[in-house]
Simulated assay, not measured.
Amino acid sequence: METEHERPAMMGGAHRFVGLAENLERYAGTPTGAEPPNVHGSNRGYGLVFFFLEELHLTTVISSGLRFQPLGAEPAQELACTVYKEQAEAARHLVDLTSELLVQQRTFLVPDQIVPNEKPLLPGTEFHGVLASGHPIFPSEFTRFTDPEGNEQLQVFTLLPVTLGELNYILDHGVTSLRQQWARFEVDVFDLGRPSIA
């Protein structure tokens, strides 16, 4: 993540995010790599940063740049996805796909929003969507970044993959009920090889 003094002055408002990189590292772990906005040629409007939390063997992929896009979100937003290290590429794909959708449609996420897809998001899986959530284990300070005065400047939505059966379950019973089912069956939401509970 770039710090404020590394960003061009024309980015405007970047001072609101001083300390963001350090805050993300505090919870998500050591930065292990980054993918620039122009990785495929043209500037897609955001980059991706990879973090590794060794003690839990978790990789978190976080978007970097959505907060400067005209998405209409207040406060600004970035997206994250946490998985086991071996599944990092899948997390990269989910964050990239969802970020691209937000930039193209100039829209933003709200808590507990489902972003469905007609086909599986990941080959060989039943994951047909993601749930925009707070992080399952990181504290609220990861999800809600505030400036030194305590004003909320950024929300980091964690994308939790949901299966087609779980999407239908949400339509019938709601997100809260799905979370209760996940807790009941001790679902490991960081494991992309997990079974569907519905």
Score class of each variant (00 low, 15 high):
Tyr27Ile: 08
His5Tyr: 14
Val156Met: 00
Glu4Ala: 05
Gly72Tyr: 04
Phe190Gly: 03
Phe190Cys: 08
Glu22Cys: 04
Phe52Trp: 14
Gln113Gly: 10
Asp96Cys: 01
Glu54Asn: 09
Leu109Cys: 10
Leu160His: 10
Glu25Asn: 10
His135Asp: 12
Phe145Trp: 09
Leu131Phe: 13
Asp188Leu: 07
Val162Pro: 04
Asn168Thr: 13
Thr30Lys: 14
Tyr46Met: 03
Leu94Lys: 01
Pro116Val: 12
Ser133Thr: 15
Leu167Asp: 04
Ala73Ser: 15
Pro123Gln: 01
Asn151Ser: 13
Ile197Asp: 01
Gln69Glu: 14
Val156Ala: 06
Thr60Tyr: 03
Met1Cys: 09
Thr30Asn: 12
Glu54Asp: 13
Val83Ala: 12
Val49Cys: 03
Ile170His: 00
Asn23Asp: 01
Phe190Ala: 06
Gly124Tyr: 12
Ala28Lys: 02
Leu58Ser: 04
Phe145Ser: 00
Asp96Val: 03
Val110Gly: 06
Leu97Cys: 12
Phe185Ala: 07
Ser42His: 14
Arg26Pro: 06
Arg44Asn: 06
Val130Glu: 00
Leu164Phe: 13
Leu48Met: 06
Phe50Asp: 08
Thr3Gly: 09
Asp172Trp: 12
Gln155Leu: 04
Leu71Pro: 03
Asp172Ser: 09
Leu131Arg: 01
Asn117Ala: 05
Val162Lys: 00
Glu118Val: 07
Val156Glu: 02
Leu79Asp: 05
Gly19Ser: 05
Asp147Thr: 07
Arg179Met: 13
Pro116Glu: 02
Pro161Cys: 08
Met11Gly: 06
Arg184Pro: 00
Pro31Asn: 05
Ala14Val: 12
Leu24Thr: 10
Asp188His: 04
Phe185Ser: 07
Glu186Ile: 07
Gln180Leu: 03
His173Tyr: 14
Thr143Tyr: 10
His173Val: 04
Ile62Leu: 09
Met10Arg: 03
Val103Tyr: 10
Leu154Asn: 02
Ile197Met: 07
His135Tyr: 14
Pro136Leu: 04
Ala183Leu: 05
Val83His: 04
Pro161Lys: 02
Phe108Arg: 03
Ala76Asp: 09
Asn168Asp: 13
Leu154Val: 12
Tyr46Leu: 03
Gln113Leu: 07
Phe50Leu: 06
Asp96His: 13
Glu22Asp: 09
Gly124Ile: 09
Val110Cys: 08
Ile197His: 04
Tyr169Ser: 06
Met10Lys: 09
Gly33His: 13
Glu152Met: 07
Pro161Phe: 07
His15Ala: 08
Val156His: 02
Glu22Gly: 06
His40Pro: 02
Arg92Ser: 12
His5Ala: 14
Glu126Asn: 09
Ala183Phe: 14
Gly19Phe: 03
Phe51Val: 11
Ala14Ser: 15
Val187Cys: 00
Gln153Leu: 07
Thr125Asp: 00
Leu121Tyr: 05
Gln180Gly: 08
Leu97Arg: 15
Gln77Met: 02
Ser196Trp: 00
Phe50Lys: 05
Val115Ser: 05
Asn117Gln: 11
Leu48Ser: 06
His40Lys: 08
His93Lys: 07
Glu166Leu: 01
Leu58Ile: 15
Glu149Cys: 05
Thr158Glu: 11
Glu118Cys: 02
His173Ser: 08
Glu6Phe: 10
Trp182Leu: 10
Val39Pro: 06
Asn23Trp: 04
Met10Thr: 15
Pro70Met: 10
Glu149Asn: 09
Ala91Lys: 01
Val61Ile: 15
Glu78Leu: 01
Pro120Gly: 05
Val18Ala: 11
Val49Trp: 04
Ala76Asn: 00
Glu4Asp: 10
